[in-house]
Design a binder for these strands. Structure first.
Lengths: 222, 222
DNA sequence: AAGACCTTTACGGCATTCCGTACAGAACTA
DNA sequence: TAGTTCTGTACGGAATGCCGTAAAGGTCTT
């Protein structure tokens, strides 16, 4: 079994249970951090000491508080970690259950498993760890596997996200056009923006801009 | 110390840690449920057996799954419980940190304490239980106490929420006017609705309707 | 190089929002 | 009761969103 495991989780309640679950798998060295920055430091220190971590289990969202952290989310943490220790195994353990979000995590971050916090997540977490250790294929629930194969979900690019974010900030199409021109984002013509917004409205079955933002906010896209 | 405590929490990880925390307070009878409906049943059964619960610790939001539950949130659960056992003590243990939401919980549900899941929530939960048992005043963090006293936050009524919800469903002012007339909600004239939306935009410093919905969605109002 | 195709942009007409003014009725005041 | 204030509603004009058409420019094929 893995020897050295790091848990990045802000909620004290959850990290207690995770540690307990790891102990049952007879993992000897378990460390916890409540902040992404601390997790990254620990990983760098471990490499320096020639005792690197085998596995990182991280939450996605971390509450912000008085501390000013560089890394504020599990995504940022894993991205940074992979750059310094590419061979480390990673599991995301989060409440997030939007399939396209999870899909992008597999594609962009190359995580080894995604375990969704829920009513029986301890067991799922344990089997995920076991399978990764045995180099078996990651178990993905059927429903999720289907959406992961669905290419159409991947059409929403960062361009669309920027567009939606600007809209949700209360900017008009005119203003977004100017903003995009300043930032060098193309396309940035009025009509092109309108057309793109229209595609998003069709995609998300939205009646108007207000509806569109309401929907994408619910999906956690913005 | 309390004798019999019920924990309503869907996430297995968290309920493990909560039970552990309760055991340290030498509470002897601790029961857990993962669904609101089950919690309500247990409480009714306990009353029937003449061994009622002293304290209910409940989460706010519960994941929906295959089961079709009558009670789907901690609010609904506590509301139902208070009707059958008005003297039961209640603590909400949730990740929600929007002050006006918490305020409405104290005002509408009459909860005894609100503990926010976070980096040191176990300890907060334990002291909250202790204080409730000793009939001391509930400890509220300074920041929260301020907003609880702030009357202005309470100006947003259910009328405004309905309005915002209809907007976020993609309806036009015209359509909302018809909807309100059908439901007997007043005011329902076009201009009145516009005027009210305008007030909300001023209040939330929103540039336009899209912005307004984005803001109120973030605040968890809609 | 010519044609088909795609993307970006421009323009125009209609719908909706945005915002100011105005007026009628209810509630409140003296 | 008469005047004042508040609230709900109506109307109108400017700005923005909404949607279709079309032109300009790029890419690809043949």
């Amino acid at each position: 079994m893995f020897n050295k495991v790091l848990v990045a989780e802000d909620l004290d309640t959850i990290s207690i249970a995770v540690v307990q679950a790891l102990e049952k798998l007879s993992i000897t060295h378990i460390h916890c951090t409540k902040y992404c920055d601390d997790a990254f430091l620990k990983i760098k220190k471990a490499i320096h000491d020639n005792e690197p971590y085998d596995l990182l289990i991280s939450d996605l969202s971390f509450k912000s508080d008085h501390r000013e952290d560089k890394l504020t989310s599990g995504e940022e943490l894993i991205e940074a970690v992979k750059k310094t220790q590419p061979d480390i195994k990673t599991i995301i353990f989060s409440i997030e259950d939007k399939s396209f979000r999870i899909k992008s995590l597999f594609n962009n971050l190359g995580i080894n498993a995604y375990v969704c916090k829920g009513r029986d997540s301890i067991e799922e977490l344990q089997t995920a760890i076991q399978r990764i250790y045995n180099n078996e294929e990651v178990k993905i629930s059927n429903e999720l596997a289907l959406t992961l194969r669905d290419k159409s979900l991947f059409e929403i690019e960062s361009y669309d996200i920027s567009l939606l974010k600007s809209l949700s900030k209360g900017l008009t199409v005119e203003e977004i056009s100017i903003e995009f021109k300043d930032s060098g984002i193309i396309p940035n013509g009025n009509s092109s923006l309108e057309k793109r917004i229209n595609k998003l409205k069709v995609y998300f079955k939205a009646n108007n801009n207000v509806h569109l933002i309401a929907i994408t906010k619910d999906l956690g896209l913005v």
